[in-house]
């Protein structure tokens, strides 16, 4: 904890400095609020407008969580299947990489044409966005098992199931978690993008409404809300990681 405080004050200082410059600049140059609002105006709107965007926020959080859970479960499942059946891996691995290159912005309107404005196209967008990082990192974690430990397991007569659950799966966990962290931040972005497609509520909707009515302060509020959401999500996963991989974190710090 103290470590975070010690390391954390420098970036924090930079952020505060940036805000101060921003505040001063908007005042000195008398920039109109509809063009660039000052940080204090954004904070004001963020607090006073809470009741306006509260339900949007909950809706986005819900969408993000559902999408994240579906997307990562799917990614992990696919990674496990590809790992366990090497021929399937050789066939589908290139496809996974292609999936990352699908331009979501282009695909999204198509999904609306195919699936309408309901939940489904939104979940597909988030799943697509989450899928790649988690699938690739899980697959890598499963593949890069220590040969020494594998040697021991085989000599001890472990079955394939035992090798998977006692060796490969725990070995892949750190890698899986780094994938989860990336997917977590992506999934927030995915949710907002999918809300742009057309939705009744959500931060994406709030943002569209705000920008079309020149409420730039509200656009900035939604930017900060999205950032805060991503960060919270990221920190949650990091905390989970600390708990699941407690055998590692300490050692690295001590021996480093």
């Amino acid at each position: 904890m103290r470590n975070i405080v010690q390391k954390g004050w420098r970036p924090l200082l930079v952020i505060i400095l940036l805000f101060v410059i921003w505040e001063v600049a908007t005042r000195v140059f008398e920039i109109p609020a509809w063009l660039i609002p000052s940080p204090s105006q954004v904070v004001d709107e963020g607090i006073s407008g809470w009741s306006v965007y509260e339900h949007h926020l909950y809706s986005t959080i819900l969408l993000t969580l559902i999408g994240f859970i579906i997307g990562t479960s799917f990614g992990i499942l696919v990674a496990i299947c590809l790992h366990l059946i090497p021929t399937v891996r050789n066939m589908f691995y290139p496809l996974i990489i292609f999936s990352q290159n699908i331009p979501i912005i282009v695909l999204a309107p198509l999904l609306v044409i195919w699936f309408g404005f309901g939940m489904l196209p939104k979940l597909i967008v988030i799943t697509l966005v989450c899928f790649f990082p988690i699938a690739v990192s899980t697959l890598d974690g499963l593949r890069q098992t220590s040969t020494e430990l594998m040697h021991y397991m085989k000599m001890a007569g472990a079955s394939n199931g035992q090798i998977f659950w006692k060796l490969e799966w725990p070995h892949a966990l750190p890698s899986l978690f780094s994938g989860l962290k990336i997917s977590a931040t992506y999934s927030v972005m995915g949710a907002v993008i999918s809300e742009w497609l057309g939705a009744k509520e959500g931060i994406g909707v709030y943002m569209t409404l705000a920008s079309s009515s020149f409420r730039t302060d509200r656009v900035f509020v939604s930017i900060f809300v999205i950032m805060a959401l991503s960060l919270t999500f990221f920190l949650l996963i990091t905390a989970l990681e600390k708990w699941f991989i407690r055998w590692k974190s300490k050692g690295v710090e001590n021996s480093g």
């Binding site: 020494e148 006692k166 060796l167 725990p170 055998w247």
Partner: peptide, 18 residues
């Protein structure tokens, strides 16, 4: 045929998460 001996490998090969 695997699993018919008790075995200690040359390197300790302990599982870091156990």
């Amino acid at each position: 045929k695997r699993g018919s001996i008790s075995y200690m490998p040359q390197s300790p090969s302990l599982f870091p998460w156990r």
